[in-house]
Nucleic acid binder design. Structure first.
Lengths: 373, 373
DNA sequence: CTCTGCCCGCAAATCGGTTTGGGGGACCGG
DNA sequence: CCGGTCCCCCAAACCGATTTGCGGGCAGAG
């Protein structure tokens, strides 16, 4: 009933709106084959005719039906992007980059978020399959092996972060967590910190594990011991950061610095520390991870380890294109991380701060040309 | 060449992967029509056959080709959502809600962002048209009339915020800015503020204009004069907030409170005030608009006017469904706003704060059960 | 004037589904 | 045992494009 009405409504307005390749052909006085050739830039079409066709297209405001085109050609020019959580600012920034770069290369994108829910992940995959994405970037930073099998089985090129099955058609974005995290630890060590806590991400996330491992290793490199009690499990959310900091505050002996597995956690920590009446960085130094835009305007601005969304996005699109267009895809793509020093890190309470110099990286001033001091 | 290789590659792996309705029919020993009927839950199929079909579908891991289905049925079950900026946290929260509710109702969504760029807006529209979205929600809070005509012309149901052409097939989400903003102004007035500034959004945004108008009106209602000098143009970004606050700081006479057209602006202001060595709310009270998640954890937590993303999303989907499914769509949908008091607002400096009580709304404590004080 | 190309139009197959008219089979009643 | 009904299933048309072989018109060369 509803369908019928819709159908008839469409029919009724079909006269002026009907806009298939036939009407273009008619208007340009050519055959549909010629229109198709023109649109797809087949070189054998006469320039004069091509012009007529393009004019007709303009005048009718015609554009080809994506579905029909995809159906026969088999090419959808669509890349999928699966992220874990769209409300975490890290991901929108990533999506933005992915979209821009994909569009630059003539692809469109289809975004889905899993919200860390395997059931939703399953839906995401189904969507990608149904819509016939030509390649999918899985940026959930924690793979659901069994589910993703479906994609791999159907020979859809995939991109993962850090780890993934070793198979043709699959590329990996290898993030060098260690480089940035070591810079962070060294930065803290140089300031005089010896008691450093770490708030992890969800335990099942591989990337969270890697960050913790990099932290642990860096600590050893700097000759600092790791206090297992100070490794708190967070979940990469604001609330997780707040809870983790509550745990930390309850300890008898507090660390002088805390490194977080992502910026949202760090912002939660910042908030809890403020609530507790302590000051950053005087009472506690904080380092985040990701370097989201917001990090520049927290109070105080957050020292963070930057993982470039743009770089990630570019590598992902490059890898997918390489697979789809047979351009000798690499298996691994290296992604760098680096420390960005702002103002949430400082000398530990009671140190002889006047005698020392910060060393490490260059201190960045906040945006809006507002100078420090 | 590349295409050819891909084609042949697909052919090669086509044996085990080919997965059309025919193979299902073959495996279940029925005709393709029966498979189609089964999938679409046409009641006239024999239960026994249906079971056979579903089994075959399970075994083959089959799912229908969306494009083919849409091509013939004319129904894509796709709603478009155009937002202005995906990196502004307000929008991801909106997108999330829109997606959840759309999926609940059996629709999928297609998101595009314009970045305030008319060229990109044009691309967005083309995308929606090409992908044959059955309805589009335009949540840019500032319409590009001439471009959107294309959609309207093709009889695509549309949803706008605040204003839009009066035409069948178009619904409006009418946001009652005045209610929340008046609460905010009253709240400030009750605290004793008489010198209140306003940082607007981009001038061309209708919603920004409305917010300013509501502010102006509320001021009058409270018997407070509007100092035109203190109406600063922002652009709804962090940087805009910072710049606006710089302007404000340069004035000889400073306001004691500032209301912002959105939360990102307010966070920028918060940052700049911190930079200037002033304190919130002691030296300056700040009210934001939107009440994004981040507002709960700024330092101090931000008093803000809440405009429910979920409500917005729900209304948008409801409206679009009503148009598509012929369920007597309304033209207008009311969206409410309300004040959420946190800690960025307080008595103006020099007032007799001990003698007064806050009145107005209930003060909310921050998340994570951390009590105030 | 004929031959050789070069373009273009025509017509048909195809992609993977939906939808419908027609017909075969089972079952029931007479 | 036969005719009628009803239920389901099959075959075929269709959606809007792409792609192909083939034939024809036209131009330039010989």
């Amino acid at each position: 009933m509803a369908t019928k009405k819709t159908k008839s409504a469409r029919r009724a307005s079909t006269k002026p709106v009907l806009m298939d390749i036939r009407s273009v052909a008619e208007r340009a006085n050519v055959s549909i084959a010629t229109v198709s050739r023109t649109i797809n830039h087949v070189p054998t079409v006469n320039a004069k005719m091509a012009k007529r066709v393009w004019e007709a297209i303009r005048e009718l405001n015609y554009f080809p039906n994506t579905q029909a085109r995809a159906l026969v050609s088999g090419r959808t020019r669509l890349f999928g992007l699966i992220v874990s959580e769209i409300t975490n600012p890290f991901f929108p920034e990533l999506i933005q980059g992915f979209e821009d770069i994909a569009v630059e290369n003539g692809y469109e994108i289809l975004v889905s978020s899993t919200n860390y829910d395997p059931r939703r992940m399953s839906l995401c995959i189904r969507r990608m399959l149904e819509r016939k994405a030509e390649g999918v970037a899985v940026m959930t930073f924690g793979i659901e092996e069994p589910l993703l099998e479906q994609l791999a089985e159907r020979n859809v090129p995939l991109v993962f972060v850090d780890v993934g099955p070793d198979r043709p058609g699959i590329s990996l974005l290898k993030v060098d967590y260690h480089h940035g995290i070591r810079q962070g630890v060294q930065h803290l060590a140089a300031l005089g910190h010896r008691n450093i806590a770490f708030i992890t991400g969800p335990a099942r996330l591989h990337s969270a594990q890697s960050r913790l491992a990099a932290f642990s290793k860096s600590l050893t490199e700097c000759g600092i011991g790791l206090n297992q009690e100070w490794v708190i499990e967070g979940d990469h959310t604001l609330e997780g950061g707040i809870r983790a900091m509550e745990t930390l505050l309850a300890f008898h002996k507090m660390p002088t610095a805390v490194m977080c597995s992502n910026d949202m956690t760090a912002i939660g920590v910042l908030h809890k520390v403020y609530r507790a009446g302590l000051r950053v960085p005087d009472d506690l130094s904080i380092i985040g991870f990701d370097d989201i835009q917001m990090a520049r305007v927290t109070i105080p601005p957050l020292t963070s380890i930057q993982m470039s969304r743009l770089e990630l996005a570019r590598a992902a699109v490059t890898a997918l294109r390489a697979h789809v267009e047979d351009l000798t895809p690499h298996r691994d793509y290296q992604i760098d991380t680096r420390l960005v020093v702002r103002e949430s890190t400082g000398y530990p309470r009671g140190s002889m701060q006047d005698l020392q110099e910060s060393g490490a990286a260059v201190r960045q001033s906040a945006p809006g040309k507002s100078a420090r001091n």
